[in-house]
C-alpha cells in the first residue's frame, strides 16, 4: 500500500459519502444520474464477485472496503430509484447505458489477461468503470449546470482514479508491478474528467457554481 493508493481509496470513499449525504440531506437526487450509479454498482459487484463465491472472514480492511463499496452503491441506487424516485431527473438522464455496457463486455472478452469467468468479469468491471461517469457528465451538459455538492462529488470521484495513476507509477518504479488493463482504462477514465476538473478548479474553488454554456 502506498500513499497514492491510500488517498485514492479515501477519495473514492469520500465521493460515495458526499453523494449519499447530498441525496439524504436534500431528500432529492436532482442532478444525479441514476444510470451512472447503476453502472458503478455493476462495477463493484462484478469486480468483487470473489466476496460472494468463497466467503472469507472479514480479516482485513480490503474485504471491508469491498463490502462498503457494494452496499453503499446499491443503497444509493435504492435512494435514487425507489425512495426519492419522484426527484429523479429521468428525462435528462437519457444516455443509453447499453452503449456503454455492451462494448465493455465485448472488449472484456477480446482483451483480457486470462480467458476465465472471474478474470473476464474483472476486466469488464474495469472497462465499464472507465466510462460509467459518462451518463452523469451527459446529464450535467443537458441541464447546463451542477449543484456545488454534486461538483464536489465529481471532483472526489475523478481524483480517486487520478491518484491511482500515481499509485501505478509508484508501483511500476518500486515494485515493477504493471497491470496494463487497469492502467489504460484508468487513464481513459481520468481523461474524461479533464474538462470537468478545469471547470471545478476555475469555478467551484472560487465559490461560483458550474454553469455550462447551454
Amino acid at each position: 500500500m502506498n500513499i497514492f493508493r491510500l488517498f485514492g481509496d479515501l477519495s473514492h470513499l469520500a465521493a460515495i459519502a458526499i453523494l449519499l449525504l447530498k441525496i439524504w440531506k436534500t431528500r432529492s437526487c436532482a442532478g444525479v444520474s441514476g444510470k451512472t450509479q447503476l453502472l458503478f454498482a455493476v462495477c463493484f459487484i462484478t469486480r468483487y464477485i470473489d466476496l460472494f463465491l468463497h466467503f472469507v472472514s472479514l480479516y482485513n480492511t480490503e474485504k471491508v472496503m469491498k463490502l462498503i463499496y457494494i452496499s453503499a452503491s446499491v443503497f444509493t441506487c435504492y435512494l435514487i430509484f425507489f425512495k426519492f424516485k419522484a426527484t429523479y431527473d429521468g428525462n435528462h438522464d437519457s444516455m443509453r447505458a447499453e452503449f456503454l455496457i455492451v462494448p465493455a463486455a465485448g472488449l472484456a472478452c477480446l482483451i483480457n489477461t486470462k480467458f476465465d469467468a472471474i478474470e473476464i468479469l474483472w476486466t469488464f468491471s474495469i472497462y465499464l468503470e472507465a466510462v460509467a461517469i459518462l451518463p452523469q457528465l451527459f446529464l450535467i451538459s443537458k441541464t447546463g449546470e451542477a449543484e456545488t455538492i454534486t461538483s464536489h462529488y465529481l471532483f472526489a470521484q475523478g481524483s480517486y482514479r487520478a491518484l491511482y495513476i500515481l499509485n501505478w507509477i509508484y508501483r511500476y518504479h518500486y515494485e515493477s508491478h504493471v497491470d496494463t488493463i487497469a492502467i489504460v482504462a484508468g487513464v481513459v477514465q481520468t481523461i474524461l474528467y479533464c474538462d470537468f476538473f478545469y471547470l471545478y478548479i476555475t469555478k467551484v474553488v472560487k465559490g461560483q457554481k458550474i454553469v455550462l454554456p447551454a
Partner: peptide, 10 residues
Amino acid sequence: GYYKYKHDEL
C-alpha cells in the same frame, strides 16, 4: 514458474 495472476487493488 506459475505466477498466480491476482489483482490486489480495489
